[in-house]
Design a protein around this nucleic acid. Sequence first.
DNA 1: GCCGTTTTCGGCCCGACTGTTTTCAGTCG
Length: 588
Amino acid sequence: MPITNKDVARKLEEIGIMMRLAGENEFRAIAFDRAARTIENLQKPITEYIDNKTLTDLKGIGKAISEDIYAYVDTGEIPVLEDLKERVPKGLVQWLNISGLGPKNIAKIHQALNITTIEELKEKCKDGSVAKLPGLGKKSAEKIVKSIEWMEQYSERCLLNEAMDVADPMFNYLKELDGVQHISIAGSLRRRKETIGDIDILIGADLKDAPALFDAFTTHPRVTEVLGKGETKSSVRTEEGRQVDLRIVKPEQFPAALMYFTGSKEHNVVMRQRARERGMALNEYGLFKLDDKGNTDFDQPVSYSSETDIFEKLGLHFIPPELREDMGEFKFFEEHEDAHLLELSDIRGVIHAHSTYSDGKYSIREMAEACMERGYEYLGISDHSQTAAYANGLTEKRLKQQWDEIDDLNETFKKEGNNFRILKGIESDILADGSLDYPDEILSQFDFVIVSTHFALEMDHKKIMRRIKNAIANPYTCILGHPTGRLLLKREAGHMDMNEIVAYAAKHNVAIEINANPHRLDLDWRLGNKAREVGLMSSINPDAHSIEGIDDIKYGVYIARKARFSKDMILNAKPVDELMKWFKERQK
DNA sequence: GCCGTTTTCGGCCCGACTGTTTTCAGTCG
């Protein structure tokens, strides 16, 4: 299997983590983090840079790291990493997931007590050994036990929709309280990441009102534990097991603080560097001039009244929160005022939905009526194909029944004066060799064909690439469904090279859906740059198995925005005639 | 370990909170 960008990035990341645990210079570790990020975000395969010996042209990769990468390609090993592995026991890496415990104390506890597993750590916290160590105490030990117990019960991150279900009621409760002048969700939730750790909420209020607001926050009925409570920040755990942080800043500081707490960390680092290059310092309180020693001069604030103002002072147009990941947004918004991101209101119809013909909960008619109620103009039904027996996949005979029913329904809608249309589609399994699940004479009768893998996802790289490419090249294929088969927080993506698949699909005029189910959100937004470069079309598909599932479209729109997709790249932002034309052109 | 029209050496983003300390280290975001 060839070396992928992800392989190299993971190795470098691992080195950074191990270095911290080994107590090495922090900045040396940061250098490896940076190099890993650069490689992860590359749109070309790293092998090109390796073959041309141009690795050091990349930002953050110098002589030493380039040699590490060459060694990895040649031998499969990196000497510095092998050396670290000898010194740092494997189990310690897991300890980093314990909130409140960092590399320094991990090294200290490991060395003093000679333990490596989380179970041993929990024991040693309970029997008082950890509390006796210098710099640690009873409270530290208790905190570690609590964190471990929390980890045992809940996973560290949750899905975007779950986070919104926790955040929305809290937000709605807080915004009505006296003294709140500005309020916003911040953090990764505002950036619409596909999974969320903590939920951040920011309030702009007079400081005299802060204590009462924090009291209201920490005593909210859904709060089960108060993790911390200070003058500007409090943290709680809710009954869902999620951590919610509330910060309160003065109203005039709100825009800078919102920017700061929205992140991402990587985006903020670049923002601060840009501020420094312009003789200013940016922090959560605002923008300030630097004094002659290069320190932040809090007596010399630079005035602003919105996030837009701050961006402008740093030579940028407003960057939508979804794009603040240091994934090319700086270059884009230096030059462009607006990315014209897709809006939920741009979506005109639903593609990829299931009915009782396969494993959906509702009839075609019920699904169609639900779409009409929501203002959509069409519904592309795509039940499972025959191989998906577990999902009641359609035999050719039952397909014909479904087509008759759709024809009847469309006629009825027309008679009733409804400007609504059901399209005949299928979600065809991609068989092991990449062929589709019906003969051509059947495939040719669909309005559109979605192709998806549902089994044998763990094939090796070469096989799965051939399988998917075969499916894309099939002249009847219109859309590739949930391309990697990943289930967020549950199942890893398959071993495919998605940069290559995106390019291959674009070349064959096949769209790749953004599966809007919050468990999938696949195509991944990180492929947005590649997709735009090669002119890929996409579609925001709910993969709805029920009426409620249709509303998942909003999560797909969030991800499309995060990928910096505009309306013209999205199939179901087209009116039905244009959409049908696109399908026909593709199948010609 | 990386980087440089201020720099090839000396920085590298920065402040709040907590707990363990009597002035600061560790962690987090």
